[in-house]
Design a protein around this nucleic acid. Structure first.
Lengths: 213, 213
DNA sequence: AAGAGTGGGTAACAGTGTTACCGGACAGAA
DNA sequence: TTCTGTCCGGTAACACTGTTACCCACTCTT
């Protein structure tokens, strides 16, 4: 049954659709990076690709669908960027490289970062499924922390706990810097100080009580 | 010359304008809190107040002007909220109360917090002047840190440095929680752990090197 | 080759920020 | 008092936005 339904035509069409889908996502990405989120209109993107607006609705189901695809694309790029961080001689150096890569990505692609973490596309909020999918790219950070725990370089907390607070710290610093509250030099100095401060209790294992003491 | 220009009529008119201005801001605030940022349209706000859209343009110079006024209003409310934090027996308790008040405000008024820190109003970015004005409300935190430094409860950093990293940490945690990456219980636990971790190096004075060691 | 079904272009809808136009209300002058 | 000028504000339009009903052409089936 299903063998027959997979005719060459349908395959070609499906392949064609995927190609068109990728082209639209590429165009949207290009627009976002070069002209900012304000240029992300259905008409503008379809004009860039050379199709009508209808195609975006059939392929993505509307602007929200396209926004969600773009959102996930941002996390995929983020993941590739974090994976490219040099492992270094030990687990802690690797983790620090990842921490540097985090800020580096946010500053290189500020609009993408805003889309991912600050609702950069006006009316869009990701679906719970997409959010869970996105949080998966955060597993890289958890793995980095876990390696440090395994090698005895960190103590006093679970991998998820430490990774969470580290993520919160990185995001907070980068987010305020992108919002214009700190200039580049200030941002970098504060970013390093913050990340070091957050990690320092887990270096000695002398972790403070969670009741904010 | 200038004495004459300040006629009673102009004064009355200006007073009237201030009243209308406040009414518009109130209506916008009410809409933001009760129906979210999507309801913040010029037509909707003017309908709520009972005037035409033109008034908003003469009084605020456009939606950006109104957004900026709303933005600053958010910081004013934030400041009042932080000022209401109980001083407690010592400077450190006071600072912790402020830390609690920060998250409490963000969770009570998530849309306002998004407007202030996450570009909640679509096309709007605050002017540098407004941003500086807003950062002034952050002086409360600096003052709280300074009191702790003066009483020898914190060491190893300047008031601005410690306040900055604390702000980054609080904002990062709250921001990710508002974005839906953590639920309420998780958010609270991580928030406390993060703030405690950030402060802990400055409790002992054993501050890590800023080169992220 | 005729029929059926689907994808995509056109053009319209409602709603957005913004502004040109014009009317009317108020001030001061004759 | 009446006339004139100035300025505030309502109406209605403009150029946008996301979205969709309609229709055509093109494909596969029979």
């Amino acid at each position: 049954m299903f063998r027959m339904s997979a005719t060459t035509y349908q395959q070609a069409q499906r392949e064609g659709q995927d190609v068109v889908r990728a082209a639209i996502l590429d165009a949207a990405t290009h627009l976002l990076i070069t002209e900012g989120p304000a240029s992300l209109t259905v008409r503008r993107i379809s004009a860039e690709v050379g199709c009508s607006t209808k195609v975006i609705y059939t392929l993505f189901g509307g602007k929200d669908g396209l926004s969600e695809a773009l959102w996930l694309e941002g996390f995929a790029r983020f993941e590739r960027r974090l994976l490219a961080a040099p492992p270094g001689p030990d687990a802690m150096t690797h983790l620090r490289a990842g921490i540097d890569a985090y800020r580096s990505y946010a500053l290189d692609q500020p609009d993408y970062y805003r889309v991912m973490f600050q609702g950069g596309v006006p009316g869009f909020t990701p679906s719970p499924a997409a959010r869970q999918e996105a949080k998966r790219s955060f597993d890289l950070l958890v793995a980095g922390v876990r390696r440090c725990l395994a090698h005895g370089l960190l103590h006093g907390g679970s991998d998820a706990e430490i990774a969470d607070v580290l993520w919160m710290a990185m995001h907070g610093a980068v987010s305020l810097e992108l919002a214009g509250f700190f200039d580049r030099a200030e941002g970098e100095q504060r970013y390093r100080l913050l990340c070091a401060s957050v990690l320092s209790p887990f270096l000695t294992g002398d972790v403070p009580d969670a009741r904010c003491s």
